[in-house]
Design a protein around this nucleic acid. Structure first.
Length: 217
DNA sequence: GATGCGATTCACT
DNA sequence: GTGAATCGCATCG
């Protein structure tokens, strides 16, 4: 077993395998302006031809172009006609792997976040879910393609101030992904209330099977 | 050139 | 627990 990577190696880790990078991102902090969030849940997506669930699976397109860039770059996409979701590109340039930032805990800037997300929203829901996380940070498509490492972009990624025990990391199927649901590339921190609940991919109208037992707990 | 669907969220029952 | 809202992108003709 190799010891957990240290924080200074963040750029190095992001340049490596996407699942390793995803795990390393747990506990890291993402900051935009005065708002700071501790990541508690992420998902890994591989690149061309390697992962049917990845936006880059079928090759380079105008939308997923940032995924083909260097690691540490932000890939922001617009989904369902109303939500922005953010990824951090990993692996060598051209591989098009990325880590989806799914959820986090607000550690600074509560006021600004709550103002944006709503005064009646419980703390743990402020950044629970990929679109909510982006909304909490105040990010949208303008952040697409910017770096999270060199400070040139709106979002800055910094290592976890404390080491994350290997036992604190849980894995499971990715949320809302039909393809490759057997791949346990969702990573989250055990016991964190800010982690989103597991939801199966959108139900398909065809087929007679109902109520199939699924992953739980 | 037209159509289908998505790495989701919110409101309502 | 279920359904609706809504835009761009990718695919097919």
């Amino acid at each position: 077993m190799r010891p957990p990577a240290q924080v200074g190696d963040l750029a190095t880790v992001l340049a490596g395998p996407v699942d390793v990078a995803a795990r390393a991102l747990l506990g890291c902090r993402v900051a935009v302006g005065d708002v700071e969030v501790r990541l508690t849940e992420v998902e890994a997506y591989a690149g061309v031809g390697a992962d049917p669930a990845s936006h880059a699976h079928r090759g380079r397109t105008p939308r997923n172009a940032p995924m083909f860039g260097p690691p540490g770059q932000l890939y922001v996409y617009f989904g369902y006609g109303m939500h922005w979701c953010g990824n951090v590109v990993t692996g060598p340039p051209g591989q098009a792997a990325a880590v989806l930032l799914r959820a986090g805990e607000i550690v600074a800037g509560h006021g600004a976040v709550r103002r944006r997300r709503g005064l009646r929203v419980p703390d743990r829901d402020l950044a629970r879910g990929p679109a909510r996380l982006m909304a909490a940070l105040g990010l949208d498509g303008t952040a697409n393609g910017t770096s999270v490492l060199d400070g040139t972009g709106p979002l800055s990624l910094t290592p976890s101030p404390v080491p994350i025990p290997a036992g604190a990391v849980r894995t499971g199927p990715r949320v809302g992904v039909g393809a490759a649901s057997h791949t346990p590339w969702r990573f989250w921190l055990a016991g964190e209330p800010t982690v989103s609940a597991y939801r199966r991919a959108a139900p398909r109208p065809r087929g007679g099977r109902t109520g199939a037992p699924n992953v739980s707990g």
